[in-house]
């Protein structure tokens, strides 16, 4: 496996307005690399949903996107409250987002299921009171 191209971003948890900035940058970078539109969109959606989640629930965190010839790996790491029940969090429509976030158009309980739907693999490592690490992989079929 050759060395990946790595992009790292700090996600600002204080400001919902700026949420998604990293995803827009990743999308531009992937376009420059000449990846297919389908792959770019799947990575962008998964990362954007994750970024929004980190801002809503975890006061920000860190996103790392590694581009390998055969796959793109997205790692979202936060020091938020953790997810007490992953099965429940994965259910479409389940959300703990506050009303304020719903009024901004998010918090429909579609984030985690949509991240899973747009990626080939998704692993959630979480400890309540410590944080959450989500690793997602999108395979590249060249």
């Amino acid at each position: 496996m050759s060395a990946p191209l790595v992009y790292r971003y700090d996600i600002d948890g204080e400001n919902f307005t700026s949420a998604g900035e990293a995803s827009v940058k990743v999308k531009k970078s992937l376009r420059q690399l000449g990846l297919s539109q389908d792959i770019i969109r799947r990575v962008s959606i998964a990362m954007y949903e994750g970024e929004i989640n980190m801002v809503i629930h975890a006061n920000g965190g860190c996103a790392t996107v590694s581009v390998y010839p055969e796959k793109i790996e997205i790692v979202l790491d936060d020091k938020g409250p953790g997810i007490p029940n992953i099965d429940l969090a994965m259910q479409e429509g389940f959300s703990t987002a506050p009303e304020r976030i719903r009024s901004l158009g998010f918090g429909a309980g579609m984030g985690l299921p949509n991240m899973k739907a747009n990626t080939d693999e998704m692993k959630i490592e979480t400890t309540v009171g410590v944080g959450t690490k989500i690793t997602m992989t999108v395979n590249v079929n060249r």
Binding site: F16, T17, A19, G20, S23, V24, I45, Y48, E49, I52, L104, G105, F106, G107, A108, G109, M110, G111, P113, N114, A117
Partner: peptide, 25 residues
């Protein structure tokens, strides 16, 4: 926007009454 991200596939136009920068993103 959660639903747009989850259900939209190839729609080129977004019609919305929500006004914030996340709509553009």
């Amino acid at each position: 926007m959660s639903d747009v991200l989850a259900f939209v596939k190839d729609q080129g136009l977004l019609i919305t009454g929500l006004v914030n920068p996340q709509v553009v993103r």
